[in-house]
Design a protein around this nucleic acid. Structure first.
Length: 223
DNA sequence: GTCCAGGGCCTAC
DNA sequence: GTAGGCCATGGA
């Protein structure tokens, strides 16, 4: 069976089982960008707390962060782990936005998608997943986001190889799915939702207490 | 007490 | 070019 057909089947099954996920959890483009940076290697629960803190202290927009300093930001994002680094990353982003786009997010998103992606990747603290999350969820650009869950789930199904690079994964999904922003958005959200319930530690190893659960779920998905 | 989250950077080889 | 260390909270 062709990969594109399998992906379509998987997505339809996920949609039927879990319904539309309505992602990204965030009210504004600013909030989505801030969330994308804060969620690096940390669960969303920790990020929610930080976003709430930032809101309470009027620090949850790009403009407010830009006109604030590290010392003011850091205490509110302690729950996101690596808070010193992340405060720096937030400042790096706002610095970029003000230097290149006069602080205007809409203006930034008028830039051609892949040109903007290159620019974002040059910001210290913005890697591929964060850049793509910003492009897809805040900018509504047709870019498929790859994360650890995506690699884990699809390599276990056998559609991909675990050692593929980020770019190889992204090409695989974008070549085998129709270019559809809504689909890219919800498919990634479904993957994260599914990934949370699958064994994280050692994929399908004997020691994994969730081994049976993993297999059941994967069989269910690929049937 | 232990383990690990929706990463990314830096250093050493 | 890449493997491994670092960052240093909070929930299960």
């Amino acid at each position: 069976m062709k990969s594109s057909v399998i992906l379509e089947i998987i997505y339809k099954k996920l949609l039927k089982a879990f319904h539309h996920r309505n992602w990204w959890p965030g009210d504004t483009a600013d909030e989505i960008i801030i969330g994308a940076i804060l969620t690096q290697n940390v669960s969303w629960n920790n990020v929610e707390k930080a976003i709430e803190n930032l809101k309470q202290h009027n620090l949850c927009t790009i403009e407010q962060i830009h006109h604030s300093n590290m010392e003011k930001i850091t205490p509110h994002i302690r729950s996101t782990f690596y808070f010193n680094e992340k405060a720096k990353k937030l400042k790096n982003f706002t610095e970029f936005l003000y230097t290149h786009y006069n602080g205007d997010v809409c203006k930034m998103f008028q830039t051609t998608t892949w040109t903007l992606r290159k620019q974002l990747l040059q910001i210290k603290g913005i890697g591929e997943e964060t850049a793509d999350s910003i492009l897809l969820y805040a900018g509504e650009k047709p870019v498929f986001v790859i994360d650890a869950y995506t690699k884990r789930i699809f390599s276990r199904i056998g559609l991909t190889k675990p050692d593929w690079s980020y770019t190889e994964y992204q090409q695989f999904f974008m070549e085998n799915l129709p270019e559809d922003i809504g689909l890219y958005n919800d498919f990634h959200a479904q993957i994260v939702n599914l990934g949370k319930s699958i064994c994280r530690i050692k994929p399908l190893c004997d020691e994994c207490p969730l081994n049976n659960f993993c297999e059941k779920k994967l069989i269910y998905l690929t049937k």
